[in-house]
Amino acid sequence: MARQSNFMVALGVLSALGLVASTFWDAPQINNWLFRASTLIMLATSWNLMANAGLVSLGHSAFWGVGSYAAIMSANAWSGSILGTLVVALLAGALMGLIVAAVTGGLKGIFFAISTLALSEGLRISALMLPDVTSGAVGLFLRQDLRPSQQTLYLVAALAAVASVGVAILISCSKLQFASRAMRDNEAAAQMLGIAPRRQRMIIVAISGAMASAAGAINAWYGGYLDPEVAFTLHNTILAQIAPILGGIHTLAGPVIGSFAIIALSEGTRIWFGNMEGVSQMTFGLVLVVCILFLPRGIEGVMHRRKKQQATAGTPAPALATGRGGKS
């Protein structure tokens, strides 16, 4: 992980302050966009954490969905406040993360990815087939009297987004960072070094799960309505991956940059191509393909490369790495 320059740090802090401050400004369209960006930042950062440890999650919507249901169900049942139910969602997400990590043991790569996919779909079907618990397909509404003001929702989302990035920064400065890196590159070597991959994996997946669940919870409060399709939609899984990839996978700023870019892209296609179906989804697909093929380090990578070019004027820029000792 490249050390952030002072500039980047300053920019980061400014952005965070700006995001939080924006919630006090009454511009509904911008507030809506920044809200979506906030929850996406949480989701993307969470996905990125797992990716850092070599775990590709194709079922991040599972955590999002669990968080959504945990929040709404606990709110309706115990007249919970947004913060109270947020805690419930965090716990639910962390618990599920622990279970997933424990159950999948040492599975890596493709197998882990497929098992997360299975988890997400399995949960969706279970939510549908158990209407007594989840209200099933008919849907679940947040109790009207519990609904906080729009501003509260925006503020909570902004703070949560900042907190998520903060958590990611903390992890990157801690011992977990090395464990992740090691797990990503070579688990056997990691084990020999005395790092206990299983335990580290559980911690990472639990934190990541909690973060994604919190994002789902906040979003559920905002939307006020939930059904299994909404909660476990594949769309969230796609977004969770595209944002970090576009912004720059394995970096701190990547998920953030990517989230803003994705929201801009999504709204752009909706405004300009709103009449043509499928355009925005197709754009996402193209973004994924183009990034993987040509920009494996995302926007962040492009910026870094140009910086390096500036700094080392005259020497040729290093070739973009397309792999880091990938096994195949």
Partner: peptide, 21 residues
């Protein structure tokens, strides 16, 4: 005219736009 794409998320966004903006 707005397309909600038969999706709940899009519906929420569209309604927010119509109602707030």
């Amino acid at each position: 005219h707005r397309d909600i794409q038969s999706e709940s998320q899009a519906t929420i966004s569209v309604f927010n736009e119509l109602v707030n903006k």
